[in-house]
Each structure stands twice: as structure tokens, then as C-alpha cells.
């Protein structure tokens, strides 16, 4: 048997707790404070490392907030809990946010965690894609749901999308490694990381470097909460900013903290470490150096509006609201 085979006592204990705990989930015991929730866009991972640091170091507690981080997942869109008022802040992306607004959700983007969109074209060094033109004649593995992203990239760079052979794949690296595709459309922070963990080097062409400007990992809130609970939102984002400043100094520690805080997620420490490393340049740029974490400029908003138009989404600059950030960073 395996080392961790359950003993009879463990099983009995489990049966007991099964009966006892009822429908209530296990809630961490927080310090007293105003309960506030932030809806994450995916399962817990170092992608949200700054938030874990803020939680662990009490950056929210000391402001009187009792913060719960709600994990996302493949069946957990961010918009409903925000609209329903269960979460005060949500982690979105400009394109999804714009879509939600078009459907009547009163959202505003009040901060941008990823200055550069993580979408990339990943290829192998032997047959690399360094710039959009290199895509011509190549077989590109991608999830069909991301078709508009590719079309936008092609339009931005004046290349013919029909000259790229699309290989429909699941969101995984296998087709590239098996030679069914020459390159993959994916996030720079996941599949290339998974390959790196397996010891496979890859060439990553960040689409953000070729005109694809879509704010990723945005912070969104409803107009209603911005009006009614502004103070809590400011405090939440302030703690978040502090957490991410710490993260920037020591991403490896953030990765370790993530693995430690969520032992049941089966996270691979090595993958978390590499991912923590690789998302740094996407999150921290000259703009954040000049203005602080999460900042966005009018120019980048303009660029986002242009890219969104290519994706078929018409939005105006009033989707963005910088006032909270201005308060957080004190200017």
C-alpha cells in the first residue's frame, strides 16, 4: 500500500466531519474587520501572488478589512458575483470587461495588474516565430475560442490570416512537442512555463509587443460599489498594491507562499517559481515605475480601444476610471 493509506481512525474521523460540517464551507478565521471579497479569475496560483502576500502580511487587516479571495475556475465567470454584490472587486480583462459592459453590467476598470497582455505565440527554437510575419505558412495550434485574438493580431500587423494554418487544439503544449503544430497561441505565463518545467526551451513572441494591447488582469468594480463603498475599494487596492510591491522584490518567496497557502491544489513549486518570474515584466513597466502598481495611461486606454475595435467591441474611455488608483497612490 501507499505511504498515505488512510487508517481506520482517519476514515472514521472523516465520516464524522462529513456529517458534522454541513453545508458551510471552511472559512479561515480572520481578524475582525469589514468583510470584503475579491473574485479571482482562475484557481489559486502565483498569478495572484501579490494578493496572498497582502493577506499574509496583514496589509488589509491593518486597514480594517477582512478579505476573502474567491477562487475562479473554468465554470466561474467573474461578472456574476460582482453584479450580485458578493465580491467588491474582480479580476477581469479589458476584452471580457467590455463584453460584460455591452451586456449591461455597470463595470469600471479601476486598475490594471498586467500592463502587457500575456497572449503570445510560443514556438521551438529550431523553427522559431520571432515576429508576426514568421507566422505565415506555419501551423498554429490554438483553441478555436481564441480566433478573434489571432485575427486582431493579423489586422494589427497587416498579415493575411488565411496564410496561417490553424490546428485546433485543446489548451495544451502537446501538439507543439509532437510536431502537429509549429507554434501555439497561448499565455506566456502558462504553456511555455509547463514546457520549461519539462526542460523544453521555447521562443515566446509576446503579442503585446506587436500592437495587441489589451489590459489583462484588470481590477473591476461596479459603478454602484464605486459610489457606495469607495473607501473599502481604495483600501483593498492599496493593500493589493503593497502586496505586489513585495512580490516584485522576491517572486520566489511569493511562489513558495502560494504553494504553502494552498497545499491541496497540487501546485508544482517549480512551475510556480518560473511563472512568478515570467509575469514580472508583464506587470511592472516604466508606467508602474513612474506612477505605481496597477496604473494605466490615457495612451494605453486609447490603444486598448483600438484593439478592442479590432475584436469587434466598441467601447469608450469611460470604461476606465483612474480615480481610485489616484487615491491609492496619493496623487
Amino acid at each position: 500500500m501507499t505511504r498515505s493509506a488512510p487508517t481506520r481512525r482517519q476514515l472514521l474521523f472523516t465520516a464524522g466531519s462529513l456529517l458534522g460540517s454541513g453545508l458551510l464551507g471552511v472559512r479561515p478565521t480572520h481578524a475582525q474587520g469589514i468583510p470584503v471579497a475579491m473574485q479571482l479569475s482562475w484557481l489559486h496560483s502565483v498569478q495572484f501572488g501579490g494578493s496572498y502576500i497582502a493577506l499574509r502580511n496583514g496589509y488589509w487587516a491593518e486597514q480594517g478589512l477582512d478579505v476573502t479571495l474567491l477562487p475562479g475556475g473554468p465554470n466561474a465567470p467573474v461578472a456574476p458575483p460582482l453584479v450580485a454584490g458578493q465580491a467588491l472587486l474582480g479580476r477581469g480583462a479589458a476584452d471580457y470587461d467590455a463584453a460584460a459592459v455591452a451586456q449591461g453590467a455597470p463595470f469600471r476598470i479601476i486598475g490594471v495588474a498586467m500592463q502587457k497582455n500575456p497572449f503570445c505565440i510560443a514556438s521551438l527554437p529550431a523553427n522559431p516565430v520571432h515576429e508576426p510575419r514568421d507566422l505565415l505558412g506555419k501551423r498554429l495550434g490554438m483553441a478555436l475560442i481564441n480566433r478573434p485574438v489571432l485575427d486582431a493580431l493579423c489586422a494589427l500587423n497587416g498579415i493575411d490570416a488565411t496564410a496561417i494554418e490553424i490546428v485546433p487544439t485543446q489548451y495544451d503544449a502537446a501538439p507543439l512537442l509532437q510536431g502537429q503544430a509549429d507554434c501555439l497561441l497561448c499565455w506566456a505565463t502558462d504553456l511555455p512555463v509547463a514546457m520549461a518545467v519539462q526542460g523544453v526551451d521555447s521562443v515566446v513572441m509576446l503579442m503585446a509587443d506587436h500592437g495587441y494591447e489589451i489590459h489583462a488582469q484588470t481590477y473591476i468594480a461596479t459603478e454602484d460599489s464605486l459610489a457606495q463603498r469607495r473607501d473599502e475599494i481604495v483600501k483593498l487596492l492599496r493593500g493589493e498594491a503593497r502586496g505586489w510591491q513585495d512580490y516584485r522584490k522576491d517572486p520566489a518567496a511569493a511562489a513558495a507562499l502560494t504553494v504553502e497557502m494552498f497545499p491541496d491544489l497540487g501546485l508544482d513549486p517549480e512551475a510556480q517559481r518560473i511563472q512568478a518570474e515570467r509575469q514580472l515584466p508583464l506587470m511592472f513597466t516604466d508606467v508602474t515605475d513612474a506612477h505605481g502598481f496597477g496604473w494605466f495611461t490615457d495612451e494605453s486606454v486609447e490603444a486598448n480601444i483600438r484593439t478592442l475595435a479590432l475584436l469587434g467591441q466598441e467601447v469608450g474611455p469611460d470604461l476606465w476610471d483612474r480615480s481610485v488608483l489616484e487615491e491609492v497612490h496619493g496623487n
Binding site: 479571482l40 484557481l43 489559486h44 474567491l70 477562487p71 475562479g72 475556475g73 473554468p74 465554470n75 466561474a76 494552498f262 491541496d264 491544489l265 497540487g266 501546485l267
Partner: peptide
Amino acid sequence: EFTGAERGLGVLTIQ
């Protein structure tokens, strides 16, 4: 668990 959870077989499946 796909609707957001911190543990479970569903979570591990996604990973």
C-alpha cells in the same frame, strides 16, 4: 468545483 474551489478531485482534474 469548477465554479471555484480550493480543493477536491475536480480541482486536481483541471490542473
